Amino acid sequence: MDRFLSMGVFAKAVEAGSFSAAGDALRMSSQLVGKHVQTLEQHLGVRLIQRTTRRQHLTEAGTAFYERVKIILAEVEAAEGVAAISGATPRGRLRINAPVTFGIHALSQRLPDYLRRYPDVTIDMALSNRYVDLIDEGFDIVFRVGELADSGLIARALSPYRLCLTAAPAYLASRPAITHPQDLTQHECLGFSHSDLHARWTFKGPQGPITVPIAGKLRVDNGESLLMAARAGMGLLMQSWELVQADLAAGTLVPVLEAFPVPSRAFHVLYAPDRRLTPKLRSFLDFVLEHFGAA
């Protein structure tokens, strides 16, 4: 039997809950469904589904196999979809979620170019620093900073998220000199609530990473609010390059500890493995990788 076909039949049997229901969905007999599953079990040398007269359930091996099969089937469908619709015009609504600072200072500046290129697409973008569930909240695409959990989503790497440490000249003039990351324990550090940046900051040192605990009177879940506080001389700010570059150019903020750079963070764009790569989704992914993709 065709092993790939058998994998599809197996997945349908799991999702439908029985061989007969899977047979109805696939327009084949329950006996043939069982034969496909049996063929896979013989090939793998393990039992995938335990069946009784009343119910069926996945074995431990069956559960692990099903999770991988879902991804394989989705990837094949996506590849076929790309070939079938490569000449189609992107159209429809695209729901996007992105971190606030990246969304305002980087992505939003590029979106007019995308919409001019694809006038039949409309974008519904939600900016939030919280973790969103792409599937449950109905997004087509999400952007995420930091190391990824094993979510089952398909991730495309973007250029690392660059962070830097800055402060207002007036703040630095009124406080002890900062020549080493450990000096930060004696300073007001503006905490960012939606990551570990509220409790500790890490730098690249000559002998390796240097992590120091930080403290301050202000902690906010929004980088733009922290930027206002830094401009007012309330403390040191560790945020993205996009957020502070205009202030650095104007001199309202200056870099701190340039000899100890802040490690960049992983940055990805993600979408669901079972989400067909429609022209709108494919076009937007290509656009994002064109402008923000890893070098």
Rank of each mutant, 00 (worst) to 15 (best):
I71D: 07
I72H: 06
I72Q: 07
E77T: 07
A78N: 13
A78M: 12
A78E: 08
A79P: 08
A79G: 11
A79Q: 10
E80F: 14
E80D: 10
G81Q: 09
G81P: 06
V82R: 13
V82Q: 09
V82E: 09
A83R: 12
A84P: 12
I85R: 13
S86C: 14
G87R: 08
A88T: 10
A88E: 15
G92M: 00
G92A: 01
R93P: 07
R93V: 09
R93K: 14
N97I: 08
A98S: 09
P99F: 08
T101W: 02
A106C: 13
Q109W: 05
R110W: 06
R110T: 09
R110G: 06
L111Q: 02
D113H: 14
Y114M: 02
R117H: 07
R117M: 08
Y118S: 06
P119E: 08
D120I: 09
D120M: 07
T122H: 06
T122F: 04
I123R: 03
I123S: 00
I123G: 01
D124N: 07
M125G: 01
M125F: 01
A126I: 14
A126C: 15
S128C: 12
S128F: 10
N129Q: 09
N129L: 15
R130K: 14
V132Q: 08
L134C: 08
I135S: 15
D136T: 14
D136W: 15
D136I: 09
D136R: 15
E137F: 10
G138M: 10
G138W: 13
G138S: 07
D140W: 00
I141H: 03
V142D: 01
V142P: 02
F143N: 03
F143I: 00
R144D: 10
V145E: 03
V145A: 02
G146S: 05
A149P: 13
A149T: 10
A149L: 12
A149W: 07
S151Y: 03
S151F: 07
I154Q: 12
A155Y: 04
R156H: 13
A157P: 13
S159P: 04
Y161E: 07
R162C: 09
L165K: 01
T166I: 03
A167V: 05
A168I: 01
A170P: 00
A170G: 10
A170Y: 05
Y171Q: 01
Y171V: 06
L172M: 08
A173E: 13
A173G: 09
R175M: 11
R175E: 15
R175W: 03
P176F: 06
P176M: 05
